[in-house]
Design a protein around this nucleic acid. Structure first.
Length: 255
DNA sequence: ATGGCTTCATAGTGAAGA
């Protein structure tokens, strides 16, 4: 089973690239973030023509998440249970016995911002909810744009980023709390090249200079992690014409 | 090494992303 995640930064703008990615990689599941698309405008037909079912939760301008899937996902749910959030950031579904949770974790803007408080609160709510989800679904994959670089090696310049949003201590602590629930950062199960990132700023030639952060993650429950065969970042996608600022991440799991 | 991109909503700029 091949599962991927990608922050597309507008599904409308990136639709052709999404279809290209589906054709090239043929993932069983593709989780999308920042679709920025109202549900009524979701490109169901084009995605169906590529052989994929869609489950989605979006609104205009910001946020928006979706799960594209070769088979119809079961028990699709939106949001974090018991947490009222008008922003569409979570969608989950069960595919071949695997609970797939697609998340777009808040950016936080800066550590002084009210959005940063929202981010930390959001992460606490996520972790509280996940605890129950993990006991219900031993085979669970949590994927998406975390907007957190967990370790120094995930940041091109740790000194520069120290204490800043995406790499501040409370954010990293929240990430470790997620891991402590019994999830594994699949990327670190394998030998990886140094300076491997999943996001590069559009400005300052950041991609060409590899000034990036690894903030998109695929976390697996123990039962899935033990059968995980690979985890890689599709860096070439970021090099395309008019790219998203994020690259996709893909895992292969033996089922 | 953050003003220096990109997208959206809108009709000239402003917000937001990360």
């Amino acid at each position: 089973m091949k599962i991927a995640t990608w922050n597309v930064n507008s599904l409308k703008v990136r639709l052709a690239q999404v279809l290209e990615f589906l054709a090239a990689e043929a993932p069983d599941v593709l989780c999308l973030q920042e679709t920025k698309t109202e549900d009524t405008n979701f490109p169901l037909t084009e995605i169906a023509a590529a052989g994929y079912h869609s489950a989605f939760s979006g609104h205009r301008t910001y946020n928006g998440v979706a799960i594209l899937c070769h088979t119809q996902p079961d028990n699709v749910s939106m949001g974090i249970v018991d947490f009222t959030d008008p922003q569409k950031r979570v969608i989950a579904g069960t595919v071949s016995g695997v609970r797939v949770i697609c998340v777009y974790i808040p950016n936080g803007e800066s550590v002084e911002s009210d959005k940063y408080k929202y981010k930390l609160d959001w992460l606490a709510q996520l972790n509280a909810w996940l605890k129950g989800e993990l006991s219900r679904y031993p085979k669970l994959a949590l994927l998406g744009d975390y907007n957190i670089a967990p370790e120094e090696r995930d940041v091109h310049d740790p000194k520069f980023w120290e204490g800043k949003v995406l790499f501040s201590e409370p954010e990293k602590a929240a990430f470790r709390d997620t891991i402590a629930l019994g999830l594994v950062d699949s990327f670190r199960l394998f030998d990886q090249q140094e300076k491997a990132y999943s996001w590069w700023d559009y400005r300052m030639n950041a991609f060409k200079r590899n000034l990036g952060l690894r903030i998109d993650h695929i976390l697996l429950s123990a039962e899935l992690a033990k059968n995980c065969k690979s985890c890689s970042i599709s860096r070439d996608v970021r090099a395309k014409e008019r790219p998203s600022d994020h690259a996709p991440v893909i895992v292969e799991i033996e089922t």
